[in-house]
Amino acid sequence: MKVIESVLNILWLIFCGIWMAIAYAVAGIICFILIITIPFGIASFRIAGYVLWPFGRTTVVREDAGAASCVGNVIWLVFAGWWLALAHVATSIPLFLSIIGIPFGWANLKMIPISLMPLGREIVSTDQRFAGW
Rank of each mutant, 00 (worst) to 15 (best):
I102H: 09
I35P: 00
W12M: 01
W12A: 04
A68R: 13
K110G: 09
F32K: 09
F55L: 02
Y24A: 10
I47H: 02
G56R: 04
P94F: 05
I33S: 06
I35W: 08
L95E: 11
F79C: 09
T37K: 03
I102A: 10
G41I: 06
E63R: 14
F40I: 03
N9C: 04
I100V: 14
L34A: 14
I30H: 10
L52P: 01
F79D: 07
G56C: 08
K110Q: 13
V89H: 01
K110P: 04
A23S: 13
W106H: 07
G41L: 01
A48Y: 10
V74I: 14
A21I: 01
C16Y: 00
L52Y: 05
R46T: 15
G28L: 07
N73W: 09
L97C: 15
L97G: 07
F96Q: 09
N73C: 08
W12P: 08
R62Q: 13
N73S: 03
T91D: 11
F45Y: 08
A67Y: 13
A25W: 14
L84T: 12
L52A: 05
L97T: 06
I33A: 12
L109K: 09
V61E: 15
P39D: 10
W106D: 05
F96H: 03
I47A: 14
Y24N: 14
I29K: 05
L109P: 05
S92W: 00
L52F: 07
I75F: 12
A23G: 08
C31V: 08
Y24T: 06
S92V: 02
L109C: 04
G56A: 00
V51D: 01
G56W: 11
I75L: 14
H88I: 04
C16S: 15
V60D: 06
S69A: 14
N9T: 01
E63M: 10
R57D: 12
F40K: 03
F55S: 06
A67F: 15
V71W: 13
A27V: 02
I42A: 11
Y50M: 07
W82S: 08
A48T: 03
P103N: 07
D64Q: 12
G66V: 01
V51I: 14
I100A: 09
